[in-house]
Design a protein around this nucleic acid. Sequence first.
DNA 1: GTTGACGCCTTACAGCGTACACCTATACTG
DNA 2: CAGTATAGGTGTACGCTGTAAGGCGTCAAC
Lengths: 230, 230
Amino acid sequence: MSRTERPRGGAEPGHGAPGRRGRITRELVVRTALRLMDAEGLEAVSMRRVARELGVEAMSLYHHVRDKEDLLDGVIEAAMAEFPVPEDHPDWREAGRRIARAWRALLKAHPHVLTLLAHRREPLAAAAVLRPVDRALAVLARAGLSPEETVRAFRAFGSYIQGFVLAELAHLFGEGEPTPSAEVDLGPILAELPALAAHLRYLAHCDFDEEFEHGLDLMIAGLEARRAET
Amino acid sequence: MSRTERPRGGAEPGHGAPGRRGRITRELVVRTALRLMDAEGLEAVSMRRVARELGVEAMSLYHHVRDKEDLLDGVIEAAMAEFPVPEDHPDWREAGRRIARAWRALLKAHPHVLTLLAHRREPLAAAAVLRPVDRALAVLARAGLSPEETVRAFRAFGSYIQGFVLAELAHLFGEGEPTPSAEVDLGPILAELPALAAHLRYLAHCDFDEEFEHGLDLMIAGLEARRAET
DNA sequence: GTTGACGCCTTACAGCGTACACCTATACTG
DNA sequence: CAGTATAGGTGTACGCTGTAAGGCGTCAAC
C-alpha cells in the first residue's frame, strides 16, 4: 500500500524540474494500456507489450505501477475520467436521458472496461467516477424524490444502463434467428418453448439505440408513477 | 468447426457400450471447471489444473473440448442450465419477481459467469438459456403487452437484473463512507460535488436484497403506467 | 489376427507476470 | 565542486499459461 504512491494529479509540486530523465510516467503507462486495449483487445494488454509500445522493457513499468491489477485499475479510472458531462436541460427527464446516453456511449467506446469491472471483486474508490455520479444524483433529485428514493433510483438506472451495455456487447439480445450458420436446429427446441416461439420474430433483431431509449423511458415512467402515488 | 463435435445431449446413441476405456467426457470436464471456478475463482481454471483435478494430463482435455474458450462456453452453459424455473403465481407481477430473483440468485451462485459473459464478443447460442427466456416471456405476455412490447420489457428487465448483479459483485454500490481504510480524503473532492455530498448518507450502505426489489418494482410500475396509457 | 481409430501422454514452444540483482544518470548535500 | 543517495531504467530467471505435434497402448470390428 505504501509502495508506488501514485503521482498526485497536478504535475509534480515544487521540488525541482519534473524529472528530466524519467521518460515514462504512470499516466503515460495507463494511457498506453487503454489505447492498446481499445485497439487490440484485453489480451493485447500485457506488461511486455505495453512496455514495448513505450520503447521500454517490461520491468520498467513496475516503477510506475504496483502490478498488473493496479495498471488495469488505472485503465478503468482513465476511461471513467473521460465521461463528458452533458449539457443540462430544464426537464429532468431529458437531462437524465442525456447522462444515461453519455454513460452508455462511454462504456461502448471502451468495451473492455465492463469486462474489467465484472472482474473486480473489491470496490474501486476512484475519484474519476464520482463526478458523473454527482451529476446523476443532482438530476434525479430534481424529479422531486426524497434523498433515499433518489439514491435508489440512481442505483436502478445505473444497473439498467450497465446491464444493457453488457447484453449489447455480449450479443445477449438478438440471438434468435439471425445466427447465419444456424448451428442448431431450433425446431424441436421451440416446440417446448411456446412463448419464445411466439416472440421469435421480435427477438430476432434488435435496434439497440431504440431499445435503450424505450427501457429508459420505462424506468422514468415508473419513477413518475411512484412519485404520483406518495 | 468440424473437429471435436460435442457429444449430443442424451448419452451415446447406439453403436456399442458408452466407451469402456474413455474415462472423461466433455460433460465431466465442464462440470469440473465450473466447480473449480466457483470454489477458487477464474484464475484457478487452467487446462492443467482442470486436468489434474480429473487425474489426467492437460492435453487429454483437448479430445473433449476444442480449446479453452470452448471449455468456458460450456461452463457458462452448464451454469445457465441450473436455472430453477420457479413455481408460477397467478399475479404476473409476482411471477415475474420470482423469475427475476431466481436469475439473480443464479448469477450470484456462480459469480464468475458474469465475467465470462462480459468477456464474450459473440452470441452464445445455448439451448440452456432459452428455457428461462421462454418463462420470462410467458409471464410478461400475461401483463397484457403486445408481443413487441413484451420483448422490449424482457430486454429491459434482463438488463436491469444483470446490471444489478454486476454492480453488486463489483461492489459498485456502497462505495461512499464505509471504506475502512479511508484511503482518500473525501473532503476536498466532496466540496465540488454537492449532490453526492448530500446523498452520501444513503449511498454509504446498501441492502442489496431490498434495493433489488425496489428497482424491480420501479420497472413493474413503469410497465403498468405504459400499459394504462395505451 | 490384423487393422484402424480412439484416448491419453510426452515433449516442446512462445508468451505471461514478476522477484531479484544490477547499472547509471540525475539531484540533493556538505 | 565532490560525494552520495536514489529514482528509473535493464537483464536474467522462475514457474506458470495455452496448445501444436507426435507417440503409444488398448479397444472394436473385420
